[in-house]
């Protein structure tokens, strides 16, 4: 090999080096993250000239492809004339009963529990004492001057406080729909049926908790909490 003329030797070495480039690129692509979008070798109809949900549209001033309803209009099916079902209000006062569309059945309670775990446990905790993971983290962040960055966290209320126990279901409905003081609104995320299901479940939690604490008066709160706990989903996720 060593007696090869220089140009031939270089050509050979060059070929080997060039041949190594694609494998190296492939290995790099497969082992690292990249911020360049995928290459469409053949465009076909991969990117069509239509706007999809949540896409940007430069034609409108706000840049949104999804348009908001014109102010003052009501879409079909959105009239919500039934104030009991849609607002928790009967004759200008908070409803004290569930609307006729909502039957409190085991199915409804199961649905309510599932939704409560998704939307309420992060702050209010699995049994509603206001000790959810977000509350713990937010308090920790607020107490740490380097991480606080303007945090002003108000602790979520316990749903077992006497003033909440005394609230009519319509008022609870309004709390979920419109939020209250520092708690945000859940109207856009939880539909009306599910809001009533959550309230049915809250009532169940309150009842369970009241009877449990009547049995175990004097036991400290941390122990009692376990009684009303619906399931360990939150803890399971952490492991």
């Amino acid at each position: 090999m060593s007696n090869l003329p220089k140009p031939i030797l270089f050509a050979l070495l060059g070929t080997v080096v060039v041949a190594l480039i694609p494998p190296v690129l492939i290995v790099r692509m497969r082992t690292t993250k990249h911020s360049l979008p995928r290459i469409h070798w053949i465009q076909d109809m991969d990117n069509q000239g239509r706007f999809r949900a949540q896409h940007a549209n430069p034609m409108f001033a706000d840049g949104r492809a999804m348009r908001q309803p014109v102010a003052g209009t009501v879409a079909r099916g959105e009239l919500r004339a039934d104030t009991h079902y849609n607002h928790g209000v009967v004759a200008q006062a908070w409803a004290t009963t569930f609307p006729r569309q909502t039957r409190v059945t085991p199915d409804l309670l199961a649905r309510g529990q599932e939704r409560f775990v998704i939307y309420c446990t992060p702050c209010h905790g699995a049994s509603g004492y206001g000790d959810g993971l977000v509350n713990q983290r937010a308090l920790a962040v607020m107490g740490d001057p380097t991480r606080s960055k303007g945090t002003s966290w108000v602790e979520p209320k316990s749903i077992h406080d006497s003033d909440i126990l005394a609230q009519p279901v319509g008022q609870l409905f309004n709390t979920i729909t419109n939020g209250v003081r520092t708690m945000g609104s859940y109207e856009s995320r939880i539909n009306v049926h599910d809001r009533w299901a959550i309230i049915a479940y809250i009532r169940e939690l309150q009842k369970r908790e009241a009877s449990a604490s009547a049995d175990t008066r004097g036991v400290d709160r941390a122990d009692r909490k376990r009684v009303g706990e619906p399931d360990n989903q939150n803890e399971a996720r952490q492991s």
């Binding site: 977000v134 937010a138 991480r147 303007g150 945090t151």
Partner: peptide, 11 residues
């Protein structure tokens, strides 16, 4: 905003 209206608002 359900959380960040209070949490780390100056971040």
């Amino acid at each position: 905003m359900t959380c960040h209206a209070q949490v780390q608002t100056q971040s």
